[in-house]
């Protein structure tokens, strides 16, 4: 356990040093979200119909932008190799790293989303549902991002390729996430898509680190 804690606190310290990474995603999320009401005819009915897709899209976009640096610096300075050789299990170390990464890049988005959602005239429990949806889906997406970042590690300009790999895997989460928000605004049953998101979140938690670890091993040798 000790080694996980050490890794975790190290990740946090490094993240503070590279605060621009987290901030970029944060600003992007906020800007995309408030841009739509600004540039379109901002009547309540219209904004309420588009809030679901826009929330999901901006979260997807923001997390995608910051993920290129998920393993790259650690790969270059040899930290990943160290982790691989350390006596703790590599898979659980990856999980620790992913969660630390999520705390820095996605948690701020969820906190600010209450503000952005109210720009779209969402109120009361709707905001909570949006935050819950974002919580579940970013927790899933961070594992997908980790996998993609790991598998494209050795490539110099992975941007376009990452998008191509990440889109088909993430698409179901985006669809079901915006479905949840849409249903909660229409006042219909949200349990179906919420179950799906929870299931995907659990699946990515239990399988994601294994897959990411094997992708890293492939990229290393």
């Amino acid at each position: 356990m000790n080694i996980h804690f050490k890794l975790f606190s190290r990740e946090i310290r490094v993240a503070f040093k590279r605060w621009t990474d987290a901030l970029t995603g944060f600003i992007l999320f906020f800007l995309i979200a408030i841009l739509f009401p600004l540039i379109s005819d901002s009547n309540k009915e219209f904004l309420l119909t588009i809030v679901g897709p826009i929330m999901m899209f901006s979260a997807f976009f923001a997390s995608m932008l910051s993920m290129q640096n998920m393993f790259k610096p650690d790969f270059q300075n040899g930290t990943i190799e160290q982790l691989m050789l350390s006596k703790g299990s590599f898979v659980s170390l990856i999980l620790t790293k992913t969660i630390a990464y999520w705390l820095f890049t996605s948690l701020p988005l969820i906190l600010i989303s209450s503000l952005t959602a109210s720009i779209y005239f969402v109120s009361g429990s709707g905001i909570l549902i949006i935050q819950l949806t974002l919580l579940l889906s970013t927790l899933t997406m961070v594992h997908i991002n980790a996998f993609t970042a790991a598998i494209t590690l050795g490539i110099r300009y992975p941007g376009a390729l990452m998008t191509l790999i990440i889109t088909p895997i993430t698409l179901p989460i985006l669809i079901f996430g915006s479905k949840t928000i849409e249903n909660s605004i229409l006042g219909t049953d949200i349990s179906g898509p919420l179950y799906f998101l929870t299931g995907m979140m659990m699946l990515s938690f239990f399988l994601g680190p294994w897959i990411t670890a094997s992708a890293l091993k492939i990229s290393m040798d």
Partner: peptide, 27 residues
């Protein structure tokens, strides 16, 4: 279709044959 394209692109982008094979296969 996107998965196929992702496979092709990943395989084409990684220079080293062996690594490209294994990474694309994982995908």
């Amino acid at each position: 279709l996107l998965l196929y394209l992702g496979y092709i692109a990943l395989h084409a982008t990684i220079k080293e044959q062996k690594r490209a094979d294994r990474a694309a296969s994982l995908l």
